[in-house]
Design a protein around this nucleic acid. Sequence first.
DNA 1: CTGGTATGTTACTGACCGGTAACATATATG
DNA 2: CATATATGTTACCGGTCAGTAACATACCAG
Lengths: 202, 202
Amino acid sequence: MKSAHPIESKDETVRQPPRERIVATASELFYRHGIRAVGVEAIAEAAGTNKMTLYRHFASKDELVAEYLRRLAAEAAVFWDGLEKAHPDDPRAQLRAWLKSVEDHVSDPGQRGCALANAAVELPDKDHPARCVIEQFKIAQRDRLIGLCRATGIAEPDLLADELFLLLEGARVCAQSLGPQGPASRLSRMGDALIASHLATV
Amino acid sequence: MKSAHPIESKDETVRQPPRERIVATASELFYRHGIRAVGVEAIAEAAGTNKMTLYRHFASKDELVAEYLRRLAAEAAVFWDGLEKAHPDDPRAQLRAWLKSVEDHVSDPGQRGCALANAAVELPDKDHPARCVIEQFKIAQRDRLIGLCRATGIAEPDLLADELFLLLEGARVCAQSLGPQGPASRLSRMGDALIASHLATV
DNA sequence: CTGGTATGTTACTGACCGGTAACATATATG
DNA sequence: CATATATGTTACCGGTCAGTAACATACCAG
């Protein structure tokens, strides 16, 4: 039988190449147990491979951590773009959809806050390769928020954006200590009130 | 010369007993570098003592971590009591003073967020001796806020309290990724606006 | 078939970790 | 002085960590 194009896949459980399995496994372990709590050997084994293959794809554990965060940032960007397509020319609907999404996310008992923010806590070294990924992600997040608030016609878009930013950031970190039933559970309502309050003062 | 009471101290640089030095040193190192990043040997050496003495006072590193957090929670309680004495029968002034205090705290470039919240990120294990300290601290913090909001005469004190809680929690974690000049710098103004907004809807 | 490339396997290094044993020293109190 | 208690010192244990060397195997392209 002639070899077909490798694109064909019998089922959904195609075995990904080792690099993908390593990143996917590392993502789950890093997020659930913390970055410093997970060793490279455990990652390689859980990914169905070994340490040597891991180090053939990543120069160091720190680089794997950076890649882990880079993927999350990319996924977040995709999510934002999806919001924009779902509510075209309706920035306020985008804002509310985002609030609702974070509220749902926070209510998941398996969630442990923003992986990027957690990484910032675990890696205080300013020259860690992950630091710039974290900072750029948060800047992008804030800029996205500011843009939406401005498009909504708020008088002080930066102020509302920062309020929402802190609210969301606080909700995700708070869910780790007070649980999903804590203050974070009413996030959507709080955000709506904030937006309405700013719209009233136009 | 007869031995005087040991209470007399020639100057401010009295050498504290080893246990105090260990806790103080551990507090600084844990906060600055993260709990998992600091070894017991480094703590003992920086405290001017040794590992054996450390383990004569603390059953394990985890217990030292718990004590570190317990002290911070106690300090926070003292601070709250001070606010109450500084502004007796004026809950709104207490709220504003607290907001201002956190804003100042966040603007300190050496700050790295709430030590309790950071510990929750670093220690996800539910049976870690530090977890209950963290949870009780956050519950107390929230209850204190709710009490102040209720005393202020807010229609929905729980809602405002949770909004302020998330705002403050978000400000401290956000300062770690976006720096002291980020959204957290306008915390006081945001909180005042929130309070005013709730007072208007009485 | 052949040769290059990606991967698997095993064993290893050197460093650090939390925690302990055994013994020496100081200090304060009787 | 004598005794008890707190502290210092050194060395060690078993385990884990990040990272590497050397070699074996698979696989895919020519």
